[in-house]
């Protein structure tokens, strides 16, 4: 464990707490893409199958349970909670995310570290996480004004993988047998997708103005 990875995990946790706060405090999920939340739930379920087979550390197991439980809770809330689901922007959240799932599954079958069930699912979860934010970014552009909590949620979500990239650079230079090119390439793509959001987020922060994404 190094500081970059710890900061990355904490940033990821903060983004989830911000989303839970927004939904719980405002009893609304306007501006949040249910499809992105479903993709994240799938990412965690596919990646953390080893939760019961390989014990790495208490921290590792606890965080996996937190990520799986929170992502499923958010999906449940947006689909079933009688008050929250009324504020879901159903007509704006129209990204065909099943294509993302199919494409990532196909890619995982072609490119993975070892052609085994767990490795294919692990690669699938890495590829899917890289593109899972797309429905959310499209929804933000369509819905125009972004409320603060949603903006902060997306910002921390983008920042977490940027910390992981620093973690991989650090591990590359400090560990001998360290090769995670699948994660590194996907992580770079994932962080690059946030580039324009980060730009507009910085502009809105500098001008102390409302975050506006160009349609």
């Amino acid at each position: 464990m190094n500081i970059f990875r710890f900061l990355g995990d904490m940033t990821h946790l903060i983004s989830i707490l911000i989303l839970l706060l927004k939904i719980y405090a405002t009893k609304s999920c306007s501006g949040i893409s249910l499809k992105t939340q479903e993709l994240y739930a799938l990412v965690f379920l596919a990646r953390y199958l080893d939760l019961f087979t390989d014990f790495i550390s208490v921290y590792n197991s606890v965080m996996k349970v937190v990520f799986i439980a929170s992502s499923l809770a958010i999906v449940w809330c947006m689909r079933r909670h009688r008050v929250v689901r009324r504020s879901y922007d159903k007509e704006l959240d129209t990204f065909r995310h099943y294509f993302l799932v199919a494409a990532c599954l196909a890619l995982a079958l072609l490119v993975q570290e070892k052609f085994t069930f767990l490795e294919v699912l692990w690669a699938f979860s890495i590829y899917l996480e890289a593109v899972a934010i797309l429905p959310q970014l499209v929804l933000l552009q369509r819905s125009g004004n972004v409320d603060n909590l949603t903006g902060q949620y997306v910002f921390f979500l983008g920042a977490y993988r940027a910390f992981y990239i620093l973690n991989w650079i650090y591990r590359y230079f400090t560990e001998t047998h360290f090769s995670r090119w699948i994660s590194c390439v996907s992580g770079l793509v994932q962080t690059a997708l946030y580039a324009d959001f980060f730009y507009y987020y910085f502009i809105s922060w500098k001008n102390n103005s409302k975050l506006q994404l160009p349609a």
């Binding site: 995990d9 080893d50 390989d54 790495i56 990520f67 570290e113 560990e175 047998h177 360290f178 995670r180």
Partner: peptide, 10 residues
């Protein structure tokens, strides 16, 4: 390092 080391991340 053992194989597991590449999967010790979240």
């Amino acid at each position: 390092a053992k194989e597991q080391s590449t999967k010790d991340e979240l």
